[in-house]
Simulated scan of single mutants.
Amino acid sequence: MTADTFAALVPLYNKEPYVARAITSILAQTRPVDEIIIVDDASTDGSIDQVTAFQDPRLRLLRRTDPKQRGLPATRNLGIQSATSRWIALLDADDSWHGDYIEEIEKLLTQATDRTGMLFTGFENIWSDGIVTQDSYSASCDDQRFTHLSLDRFVSDWLRIGGCPVIPSAVVLRRDMLLEAGLFKECCRRGEDKEMWLRLLSISDALASPRVCSSYYRAIPGQMQDSVTTNARHCVCATLEDMIARASGTRRRLLKRLFNMEVFEYARGVQQRERVSPEIYRGFFVSVEPQRYFVLLLLSYVPVPIQKLIRRFVLWTSGVIGLPNRRIGSRFR
């Protein structure tokens, strides 16, 4: 392994209309990747045909054929374990990279230290109506070139912008540190990426570029929010509780606030036809944010018709309980 080898890793499940776009964006990089690993998770459409149409010696197609063992974390883990490159560049099969993405990542590497385990860039959101918006984190960087982020700085920025600064399609991770951190949790159905970032940054640091180098396509049919409910405990909760128990001072306060925010976001994602399960906010730090806790109680115990009024006039109103004012409709992670 050398410090400048990159594997592009694309997990794939029933993305026939989009996966060719993702692979084409990998092949178009001004700094070519060293490996291209596509891991199919028992697709039932024509996704495999789209992949095999590409003839490139760097491309490997791995297949997980047991439909009972499907899952994005396990798919990514197989790709990571199979890679020989030092750096793993994730790309979802329905997203794409800009041509200079890996080139920008390589520039970030010039500022890396032995503790750097995560590199990421800005990205653009492409919405179903064709509107394109920049991600909140890179838009807030005030023309800074590169930013070093410890775990505390990362969580602080996460809280500041009201959402995770990183998405899988704009992040490159150091393979040995992923293995040390324990890879993606295969029991997670949603939020496995956020959970992984936290564990990885507990043993490493990150470097970020505000340059927009990736496209994140919103509202693609068959995305996770179509099939996995948010009316269940967030995957990240147990990890945050463990980190909080071992933390003190500023870090402990930041992690408590992050726990509350992620729990609240999951409650926001629950369909309006059902009450929020109290399991979602088990462990909520009430003394930190009593207003949000009161809203969660209302969403659990008042009749659904009244909940609609709460959502309209309180839950979705920016500033009343500290919610960011941003466009609704993202893929929940």
Rank of each mutant, 00 (worst) to 15 (best):
L78K: 06
G79Q: 04
S82F: 12
T84Y: 03
T84D: 09
S85R: 08
R86K: 10
R86C: 01
A89N: 00
A89M: 08
L91D: 03
L91V: 07
D92T: 02
A93F: 06
W97S: 10
W97L: 15
G99M: 04
G99T: 14
I102H: 00
I105D: 04
E106M: 06
L108Y: 05
T110L: 15
Q111F: 11
Q111L: 07
A112H: 09
A112C: 08
D114Y: 03
D114V: 10
R115A: 11
R115D: 15
T116D: 10
G117R: 11
G117Q: 09
M118D: 00
L119K: 12
L119I: 11
F120Q: 07
T121P: 14
G122P: 10
G122S: 14
G122I: 10
F123P: 07
F123S: 01
E124I: 08
E124K: 15
E124V: 10
N125A: 01
I126E: 14
W127G: 06
W127I: 01
W127H: 11
W127M: 04
D129R: 00
G130I: 02
I131K: 14
T133M: 07
D135R: 02
Y137C: 08
S140T: 06
C141A: 08
D142S: 12
D142F: 06
R145P: 09
R145V: 12
F146Y: 15
F146C: 03
L149S: 10
S150Y: 03
L151E: 02
L151K: 00
L151W: 01
D152T: 04
D152F: 02
D152K: 06
R153A: 13
F154Q: 00
S156F: 01
D157Y: 02
D157G: 03
W158A: 01
L159H: 02
L159C: 00
L159M: 02
L159V: 03
R160H: 11
R160S: 09
I161W: 01
I161R: 00
I161D: 01
G163N: 08
C164Q: 09
P165V: 05
P165L: 02
V166N: 14
I167S: 10
I167P: 05
P168I: 07
V172C: 15
V172H: 08
R174G: 09
R175A: 12
R175N: 13
D176P: 04
M177W: 07
L178V: 12
L179R: 15
L179P: 00
E180N: 11
E180Q: 15
E180M: 08
A181Y: 02
A181E: 06
A181M: 10
G182F: 09
K185N: 15
K185P: 03
C187G: 14
C188N: 15
R189N: 11
R190A: 11
G191M: 13
E192C: 15
E192I: 04
D193E: 15
K194L: 15
K194M: 15
E195Y: 02
M196S: 12
W197C: 13
R199Q: 13
L200K: 08
L200N: 09
L201G: 05
L201N: 05
L201V: 09
I203G: 01
S204Q: 03
D205F: 04
A206L: 06
L207D: 01
L207T: 03
A208R: 05
S209T: 05
S209P: 01
